[in-house]
Amino acid sequence: MANKGWDEFEIGAMLRSFEGPIKDIATTHQEDRAYSGNNSFTASVADWRIEKPVFNKDYCIDCQFCWIYCPDISIISRDKKMIGVDMDHCKGCGICVEVCPTNPKSLLMYSEQTDEEQALAAWPAKDTSKADSKGEE
């Protein structure tokens, strides 16, 4: 159905999210789902980004704030651990960086062209200037 033109599309037709039977979608993670070509998961909005988040797992405490507040389901968390960022669906809004409570932050925004290895190598050190303000609860 994904390849049909607008005039071939039947009135009242349904867009199927999945190919084949899915027993319990609420307990099936994305990697185990058989997405159909009509699911927006198969599309990409990566070209919307001006800045991309880079994830440094050395400082991550798996608080999952970035997971809950990500509007684009782009923070991948499995087994209570934050694994990484889904770069096909991330629009680069930067909410994950804002809500990250660690010091230094374990997610930072870099321009789209920045090399990830370089960004990780030059990660900022712990900020001691405002030690007793936010994120120390």
Partner: peptide
């Protein structure tokens, strides 16, 4: 929140909501 993060989302990315839109945060929750 850690327990909550084991949920499998039933709302998908690459929707066309603006970057930083709170709509999808609410829908996901």
């Amino acid at each position: 929140l850690k327990e909550f993060s084991t949920s499998a989302d039933r709302f998908e990315g690459a929707n066309l909501l603006c970057p930083g839109c709170a709509h999808s945060i609410i829908v996901r929750e």
